[in-house]
Design a binder for these strands. Structure first.
Length: 209
DNA sequence: CTCTTGATCTTCT
DNA sequence: GAAGATCAAGAGC
């Protein structure tokens, strides 16, 4: 019998998830680049909040210049953080119910950010299962609202630096194959292929085609 | 498996 | 007053 495909994927063994290997902590400089460089480079990185989280397997890029971005119409109280310096967290309320987190990129005034859409859970599984009321690790963080809930992210983290506690974001330690596709759940600028994922991952919110 | 719908709040028109 | 960077549950296939 050939080995299951998952056996050779980063962060997984044949039978279970293994703790992520952590690369160097990401600095503000990492985020101070084009959102189209940062977004794919975040695939395979590990994101923890108070020690709980996992490997980033899916993100989407947003930029002030396109109408799907919250920053498209200029700064508002909600989107103020996006217009600030890179390396900070932009947290917003989605559909009145969920929280979602973005990493602000580029430079002050660019209002560009990467929405974190899915994690492969690796650290603090018990805490995440408790917060989500769910056992299945595959769906624990397979969506922007789900992972915010699992990591206990709320507007309390809006505007905080990504390079200091409670955040710990570490570079990847392998070279992933990147899948790309159109962004999900939007109607404007829906054709832009600004969704990036870890090719073949079972932990994404929706499969890449 | 896919499709539909309700929940609930912020922002902008 | 309507739309929205979502999710979970229920119905139907």
């Amino acid at each position: 019998m050939p080995p299951r495909p998952s056996a050779s994927r980063p962060g997984e063994s044949a039978t279970s998830i293994v703790p992520a290997k952590l690369g160097r902590p990401l600095t503000q400089k990492f985020f101070a680049r084009s959102v189209h460089e940062v977004a794919p480079d975040l695939i395979g990185a590990t994101m923890l909040v108070n020690g709980v989280g996992g490997m980033i397997v899916e993100v989407e890029a947003y930029h002030q210049t396109e109408p799907a971005a919250h920053s498209y119409r200029g700064p508002t109280p909600r989107t103020m953080v996006m217009f600030g310096p890179p390396g900070f967290a932009y947290v917003y309320r989605s559909y009145g119910i969920h929280w979602c987190i973005n990493f602000v990129c580029e430079k002050e005034g660019s209002a560009a950010a990467v929405l974190i859409r899915a994690l492969q859970p690796t650290q603090g599984l018990a805490a995440m299962r408790r917060r989500r009321g769910l056992e299945d690790e595959r769906t624990l963080c397979s969506g922007p609202g789900k992972l915010a809930s699992a990591l206990a992210i709320t507007d309390a983290q809006n505007g905080l630096a990504l390079t200091a506690p409670p955040f710990a974001i570490h570079a990847r330690t392998f070279t992933p194959e990147i899948a790309t596709g159109v962004r999900i759940g939007i109607t404007k600028a829906a054709e832009l292929p600004w969704r990036y994922g870890l090719k073949g991952s079972r932990f994404v919110s929706k499969r890449f085609v």
